[in-house]
Amino acid sequence: MSAVAETRGLVVRYAGATALDGVDLTVGEHELVALIGANGAGKTSLVRALSGLVRPDAGQVLVHGRLAQVPEGREMFAGLSVDDNLRLGGWRNGRAGRATGPVYELMPELTAVRHRAAGTLSGGQQQMVAIGRALMARPDVLVVDELSLGLAPKVVDMLVGHLRRLHAERGLAVLLIEQNARLALELCDRGYVLEAGRIVLHGDADRLARDPRVAAAYLGGHVAAEEPR
């Protein structure tokens, strides 16, 4: 399996403080990969480095194909309409590539609100707009920074459903950065655990979910497999 996005020995520092300290991470084609870690572990730095928004101080970021980001906190253009938010997601494509129809086909929930200002939507609707906006870039790999943060479980289920379908129908690779480790490890094939700027564990999602260290730190002390579903 060839990689669509990878980092090799990635180091990112801000004003002397090291945010990422030699991170090796790979997302293969059509792969669902989870990245879990506590606040301040360096997740957002990794997202920004992958998106080209911060320059690595050492190491490499290699993206084969297109990468699009669903940023933490949704980051709407609050005063612009849903449709304009989506259109701007296709900014790099040129005018011909900014038709928003396919996004509404994928997420029909957005059709009714397409002319409303994005800032007036609910959190779940905004997260859909953020995903749609990223899809407008026609990515090969989607980096989703905190899918579930601040959203009701039902809304999260729906968003997860959309992601699964995108993956199944379009073969989109996804790197999911999540505080909710259980959710991430359930959805994904493989996972990485980031602590203090370093990858401390990686492997199959099932195996990680059963790892006692992961369970203790990220799953509230319970091993995932023992949890009733």
Partner: peptide
């Protein structure tokens, strides 16, 4: 307008 509303998001979408 997007740059005015949210410069970070503008960078994210490649503006």
């Amino acid at each position: 307008t997007a740059c005015a509303e949210n410069p970070y998001a503008a960078r994210v979408v490649g503006i």
